[in-house]
Amino acid sequence: MIYLDNSATTKPYEEVLETFLKVSSSYFGNPSSLHSLGGNIEKLLEQARKQSASLLGVKGNEIFYTSGGTESNNLALKGVALHYQKRGKHIITSSIEHPSIKETCQQLEEHGFDITYLPVNSFGRINPDDVEAALRNDTILVSIMHVNNEVGTVQPIKRIGELLADRPRTLFHVDHVQGVGKVPLDFYECHIDLCSLSAHKFHGLKGTGLLFVKEGLKLSPLHSGGEQERRLRSGTENTGGIVSSAKALRLYLQEANEGRERLRQLNSYVRKQLSEMEGIEIHSPDENIAPHIVNFSLLGLKGEVLVHAFEENDIYISTTSACSSKQKKPSSTLLAMGKSIEKADSAVRVSLSFHNTQKEMDTFINVLRHIQMKYANVIRRAK
């Protein structure tokens, strides 16, 4: 099997699975219990929190655990909206955010919030000047994804953060789910107030996420009913997931320096091969791009057909984001970039991990050539 859908999820490290099993079997008590077993588990959770914070270059009390990136995004946006709505009801985001941001904003609109959706250029990149122009006295939040999950475009987070640095009444949230480890991000240097991560994107387990909340900020909780996560996220903690996520982050960042360079080399190789093939259009830009994503179309063939054709050869890629792929709609990100419906409907995404190899990329390209030949008549008729 050749797995090239790492933006959807990654294969857990063996060490992570071992840690989860050990913690879940030996530290199965409730961290909130008064007995010594509960107290020991609470200490274990705090050790994981401090380790994750240290790896991310932030303070331990700025890390809150959630069930994943979607919950972290919801908690950031709704938590700010509910807590600071007397300050204002205007939120700025982009037109190519993850569904967990888009749909949260749509829900907030139903409750009287005013959302500005910024356009992107043909490379999927926001113009910081548009952010500045959209700011108002009642703007309480700007939420921008660091790395786009479909095409890999890296947004000018530092520049946007600098624009907001002297506006303490406007908070800055960044969805860093796709960027962690692949595109370094200094939360403090970029003036970020809230930042979302998800463990299963860096070889941790599904069901565990993190939300960075800058010290001093207050959010309204989405879950009520307990003291967990300093009353911001009630519910018995996923001890095994939290501890194993700290291990996954440590192992992942240890690989990151050499891993990013391998990703860049593989990405460059795949793009070169694709660019030499007739009927292929690459949608991921050449610059300001994460090293692990290549989005392209085999013109004349629907993306879904191409995904299943690769699957027949035991190669796994995807169309749009995993959260939207079953809707069978053209990519809204590519449409926002000015691509035609036909191109958006035929787009697929290859997303790499540090563990993919040159041999796998050669196989991928060879299989793509065979698919192109197999569907030559279909492609010709579509033209």
Rank of each mutant, 00 (worst) to 15 (best):
E237S: 14
M277P: 04
Q106A: 09
I315Q: 01
P184N: 05
N73Y: 14
I91A: 10
I126G: 01
I115V: 11
P12K: 11
V177Y: 05
Y65V: 14
G38P: 11
E162P: 02
L222M: 10
S196C: 14
M277T: 10
T357E: 10
A382Y: 00
S324C: 06
M361K: 06
S224C: 07
E255I: 01
A336Q: 10
K218P: 01
G79I: 12
Q372V: 00
E287K: 02
P99G: 09
D129W: 01
V378D: 04
R349D: 04
D186G: 13
I96H: 13
T363L: 11
L263E: 09
K214R: 15
I341S: 03
G39P: 00
E304F: 05
E227G: 07
I379S: 02
R250K: 15
H203R: 14
L163C: 12
N73R: 11
E312D: 11
N127A: 05
E71T: 06
N127D: 13
Y84K: 14
T70F: 04
N137G: 05
L222Y: 03
G60M: 06
K247C: 06
S94L: 13
S318I: 00
I280P: 13
P221D: 10
S95E: 13
I91F: 14
F310S: 00
Q107M: 09
E229T: 02
